[in-house]
Design a protein around this nucleic acid. Sequence first.
DNA 1: CCGGGTCGATTGACTGGTCAATCAGCCAGT
DNA 2: ACTGGCTGATTGACCAGTCAATCGACCCGG
Lengths: 199, 199
Amino acid sequence: MAKAPPADKRRQILDAAVRVFARQGFHATRVSDIADEAGVAYGLVYHYFRSKDEVLNELFVERWSLLLAAIEETDREGETPRDKLAAVASFIVDSYRHDPELMKVIIVEVTRAANSFGRTHLPEIRQAYQSIAKIVEDGQRAGAFRDDVAPLFASMSFYGAIEQLLSGWIFDLIPASDGDFEQAKELVVTTICDGLEPR
Amino acid sequence: MAKAPPADKRRQILDAAVRVFARQGFHATRVSDIADEAGVAYGLVYHYFRSKDEVLNELFVERWSLLLAAIEETDREGETPRDKLAAVASFIVDSYRHDPELMKVIIVEVTRAANSFGRTHLPEIRQAYQSIAKIVEDGQRAGAFRDDVAPLFASMSFYGAIEQLLSGWIFDLIPASDGDFEQAKELVVTTICDGLEPR
DNA sequence: CCGGGTCGATTGACTGGTCAATCAGCCAGT
DNA sequence: ACTGGCTGATTGACCAGTCAATCGACCCGG
């Protein structure tokens, strides 16, 4: 059997945590729930992580750094500002489509929990808003967008609109077929960009 | 001293709870914190409320019913769909300007905590989205808005954009002068409405 | 080829601290 | 003296985090 499966218990614990956090919420899950879901002893969670918080931490940082990287790459490679915003919206929506449980945890327990857990990560979250704001600002400089709105405000609205749609899917408030995902992307980009067009 | 001040202890407790919840977050506040802040004995909180949850409950219901009423009145009295959406945006932003602590609690602890506490209130929250969606739908029927977007999606984006701006103010991510409040209202209404205009 | 030694991974019973909620009674006003 | 708003010490449950013990892979010397 060679080395056999290393079984990477650490990963196993993280994946289990996503499932349990998504199902019960962070506060309502006991560390033992994570261990049980992972099929692992209670203490092992503490072998790999300093605390329950650190598990969520790790999940957030892993995912959010991908988002930040994606936004910045988009900014570098994209053609028009509208294209860039469309790519960002697409990335976020597709992230949800690809792994709804993880995105649910990120959004519900971190991004939208800025008062409790999310407070620690405000800088990283802010970074995303600012990267998007930069896209808007460049668009203004290039004359593609009207320049009488603060880029950061536009960025917050844009991100907020997307996140609200994700919330709608997460809590079954709006339909979630493939067509719906595409329609949502288009809606957000169109409304924001048309609204930002020079008068 | 006549009847003296009835001192309405119940109200006193609710007001204190707003301050403490805003400062520390719902989970991090102990019932004794509320009692202390209200200058009242621990047990009295339980004289007026069945549980700590019920205190937050009460705060949310009080405020949210005002919002629902405002949206529906706007819908009845407003002229154009755009006017109606502008009035809704204005109401929400002014609610924050008038009582930031209360709005912080409502948003952070209920509206954006749909996984824990907010779950109970999903129906009422959903009701707001649907009332806004109705405004959009009427606009579509009247030919003021393009009709190839689901009204509920537009409604969610609209509300999400506003709520994100409130979050930005709550957590000091964006400037909050009177001018900023007005600019934000205008931004949200303009972008959403222009984006919804028939092509 | 075997005994035994090392060390990290793994286990789960246990502890300490935290709070929500209770309840037995106090006292001011009538 | 009775009633009901009011008091705050107490209790009981819960759970994050600790830790002492076991396991098992691998190595080394005889």
